[in-house]
């Protein structure tokens, strides 16, 4: 992957030029799906865009010193790393890539949640600290399963290169891994039933409690970009290999849309679980499957 293709992927497709409208679109679907499930009409199509523009025009509370600078920096870091993660997705065939870009993608996907933890603690609000502590506990729980699932997918196909993974036909083991990833996505995206860190009304807004105006707009955007990156990762693993570039792009968008619809419906249909139930769910119920997937992948690799 040379400089030009890397920049084109980061800035145009599937990077910022595509990902920002897609992020707003997914945020709208998230709210619209909840509204439809509750028998409401729901927000208009442009709602996340209006929210973003409005937040850009609002004031921010005065902040000083290192804590203030850090609080301003966290949302920007989160947006930048989420955009970078989207840019790494191998949507178009023969778009290039490098050995080990899957690892970089996972690291970039993890940065927004670390930023949320840090933001809650640096805001020095009691609600922010509770939210951050919850996010930290949650992230330790689901990440074990999430990473094991990814490792099992990569080990069964003998590669850590995203494009090679996307091109190889899906094996039964990969489907097991994809299901494990899908189980982790609601926790990664803070959706019901795992919406513990931002727990609306319960602990005000969790780590976001002290954020306002443009900084809050950046958090919303990074949340949307996380949507695009996480659903895009699933879509890449599921999608069949297509050589026509426009067909590949359409299949990618349709699959992401399907994943978003599924997760939003799940979020609308469930209520928030308590933190101990969530942790038990990930450590007791799903970890077994992830370990099974990884061990069978390694076993098959040893045999071949």
């Amino acid at each position: 992957m040379n400089m030009t293709t890397a920049l084109a992927r980061l800035l145009i497709f599937p990077g910022i030029l595509f990902a920002v409208p897609a992020a707003w679109f997914f945020l709208w679907i998230e709210r619209k799906a909840v509204a439809l499930m509750q028998g409401r009409i729901g927000p208009p199509f442009m709602q996340p865009f209006y929210d973003f523009i409005k937040l850009l025009g609002k004031g921010t509370p005065p902040r000083s010193g290192i804590a203030g600078a850090l609080m301003r920096a966290w949302p920007l870091i989160a947006v930048a790393s989420a955009a970078g993660a989207v840019g790494l997705l191998p949507v178009l065939p023969a778009s290039g890539g490098f050995e080990g870009d899957l690892i970089l993608l996972l690291a970039l996907l993890e940065v927004p949640s670390i930023c949320i933890i840090a933001a809650g603690f640096s805001s020095r609000s009691i609600f922010g600290e509770i939210g951050s502590a919850r996010e930290a506990v949650l992230s330790v729980s689901y990440n074990v399963v999430f990473l094991l699932a990814i490792v099992s997918v990569a080990a069964s196909q003998h590669t850590f290169k995203l494009e090679a993974l996307a091109q190889l036909p899906a094996s039964p083991l990969r489907w097991l891994g994809i299901i494990a990833i899908l189980v982790c996505l609601p926790a990664k995206l803070h959706l019901n039933p795992f919406s513990l860190p931002n727990a609306e009304q319960e602990i005000y807004s969790g780590p976001m409690t002290e954020y306002a105006g443009p900084e809050l707009a950046m958090w919303e955007l990074s949340h949307g970009l996380e949507w695009v990156a996480a659903t895009g990762l699933v879509a890449t693993l599921v999608a069949p290999h297509i050589t026509l570039w426009w067909l590949a792009a359409i299949v990618f968008i349709a699959l992401s849309f399907a994943v978003v619809l599924m997760l939003s419906t799940l979020a609308a249909a469930t209520a928030r679980l308590a933190i101990d139930t969530t942790v038990r769910f990930y450590w007791q119920c799903t970890l077994i499957f992830a370990v099974l997937a990884v061990s069978s992948a390694l076993f098959m690799r040893l045999r071949s």
Binding site: K58, P61, Q201
Partner: peptide
């Protein structure tokens, strides 16, 4: 309906 007055208009 927002949880935090910082977010509200």
């Amino acid at each position: 309906l927002e949880g935090s007055p910082r977010h509200a208009d």
